[in-house]
Design a protein around this nucleic acid. Structure first.
Lengths: 120, 120
DNA sequence: CTATCATATGAACATCTGTTCATATGATAG
DNA sequence: CTATCATATGAACAGATGTTCATATGATAG
């Protein structure tokens, strides 16, 4: 007895068993889907995008970023924490300063793909 | 006199002129940054990610999606509109049904890159 | 130890976002 | 034309998010 679905709303005529099966098999588990959405949420703010773009060019300390982009220190710090939690940036201390940089190459690729899309 | 910046908070010792220049040159304009963030915002919701994943396998109508993923018709419809506005999905009508499908290959690539990142 | 600089953190607040509920639209069968 | 099915839409509401303000932490110079 293959997985017949509860018919609630429409006739559900249009999907064949194999499609249902494929979707079910390929769909990542709830946790992964959640994590994935969380990751993209991080890219979904123009302040954070700006910060990432700035870090494309060089390692920067918090106040560098703030001044370069015209943001407050506090806002940058809060957003850097978000970026750090998602492992998109890393930092190293040098005296009083914390220098932030991109964590890996995924950041550039993801933003690159996004740019491709919006430039049609 | 090259672009010396207003020193507000820190000494701004750490960034050289050429870095400042590069960041300023490479940073897309406000509108583009905003659009880019808007795009990623769309990926930043697990319901929409689920819908996109389902559409990886086949063209589906609204109620197919709702039943396959255990969502309400209304929620799916609202989210499909968001996806459509961002040109991530398209649809065609067939009688009473609207069949949705992925708009282009960017969707897969962007989600793929995201998956790469979260799987470390 | 104290003052200062760079940065982080927490609370507060306004704004944005996703879902639900109720209803409207649009296609089709009879 | 009317009823019905598939889908869209709008209002309402709860929960999430980003910024600001005030303050704390942590390193360093003196």
């Amino acid at each position: 007895m293959p997985d017949k679905l509860e018919v609630e709303q429409c006739e559900y005529l249009f999907v064949h068993e194999d499609v249902v099966k494929r979707v079910r098999e390929e769909l990542p588990d709830e946790v992964t889907l959640y994590d994935l959405a969380e990751l993209f949420k991080v890219f979904g703010d123009s302040t954070r995008i700006k910060i990432l773009y700035a870090l494309f060019e060089a390692e920067l300390c918090v106040c560098d970023i703030a001044q370069l982009l015209g943001l407050t220190q506090t806002a940058v710090s809060h957003q850097l924490r978000v970026l750090k939690n998602s492992k998109l940036v890393k930092y190293r201390r040098e005296g009083k300063n914390l220098f932030y940089s991109l964590a890996d190459s995924h950041v550039r690729r993801i933003i690159g793909q996004g740019m491709d899309h919006i430039s049609e």
